[in-house]
């Protein structure tokens, strides 16, 4: 079976090798989007709130390392809400999770709203095209304002489940992140390896949709919006979970679960 598959892969590579460049790109894109279509068909952009114990079923019972980590997770958290693994999961989890939190606790809202409102001018100062950015901003700020205007939990959830609205929100969070990185480039430049300039990094790793987020994205987005986030890391390293707060020494209001390549929303007990 495995042999068959690797044989197929070889044939596929041969087939790609002989293509002119643009057809090769086309073929790769088609393959990628068919993988993405598969993911889209099998998971919601944003799932329902699930009991945290459900996570146990995702790993085999004799996976001692993960089962132990999940037990520890259960002590702190009661529920998890999954996001679609389309590369936008951090932004979507952050966007929905933070607004959801502010529906019930308005304490963090004023500072979030102020930073959100000011972000458009900051992008204009960096000479972003107003035409498109305005479109993303208007959508974004109307969702942010809806929290103050008493939007219901179901309506907020529906907004983040509707592909157009949800992705527009993600596009704008990516722009805020990029803007923050560029505004404080002396600081962030130190985190970028691979010989890219900060602007190149933003254009290739931050602003395009469907690309995964790293520490640097989280640092930039949380500091741009004045948000406090705790990430619980569950991976193959170490015997126990590790936690990281953004910014450090803050009181986190939103909790996210990280598993390699993916973020979901966590609900503390």
């Amino acid at each position: 079976m495995d042999n068959d598959r690797s044989h197929d892969n070889l044939k596929e590579q041969d087939y790609l090798k002989d293509m002119p460049n643009h057809e090769f790109d086309e073929a790769v894109n088609t393959m990628q989007s068919s993988i993405q279509d598969e993911i889209a068909a099998s998971t919601d952009l944003l799932g329902d709130k699930l009991d945290i114990s459900m996570l146990k079923n995702e790993y085999s019972a004799d996976d001692v390392q993960y089962q132990k980590k999940i037990q520890n997770l259960e002590k702190r958290y009661s529920h998890v809400r999954k996001t679609r693994g389309d590369g936008n999961c951090f932004f979507r989890a952050f966007g929905f999770g933070y607004l959801e939190h502010m529906l019930s606790d308005k304490k963090d809202y004023p500072i979030f709203q102020e930073n959100a409102s000011n972000s458009f001018q900051k992008l204009m100062d960096l000479k972003y095209p107003s035409f498109t950015v305005e479109d993303f901003f208007e959508n974004f700020i109307s969702v942010v304002n809806s929290v103050k205007e008493g939007v219901s939990h179901t309506e907020l959830l529906n907004t983040f489940r509707e592909e157009g609205m949800s992705n527009y929100f993600v596009v704008y969070l990516r722009l805020i992140t990029s803007c923050q990185l560029q505004s404080d480039s002396d600081f962030y430049q130190n985190f970028i390896d691979g010989g890219k300039t900060l602007v190149e990094f933003c254009k290739t790793e931050v602003e395009p949709m469907y690309l995964e987020s790293d520490h640097i994205h989280i640092i930039a987005l949380t500091s741009a919006l004045g948000a406090c986030v705790r990430v619980a890391y569950m991976d193959r390293g170490g015997d126990d979970l590790s936690f990281h707060d953004f910014p450090e020494d803050s009181q986190p209001t939103l909790h996210l679960l990280y598993r390699p390549g993916h973020y979901d929303v966590l609900y503390p007990r």
Binding site: Y128, P129, F131, T132, V133, F136, V171, L175, V199, E200, K203, T204, E207, P208, M209
Partner: peptide
């Protein structure tokens, strides 16, 4: 240059 690839902020004009 990877920086010249598609981004959502691009318009028909750009």
């Amino acid at each position: 240059k990877a920086a010249e690839r598609w981004l959502p902020v691009h318009t028909v004009e750009t």
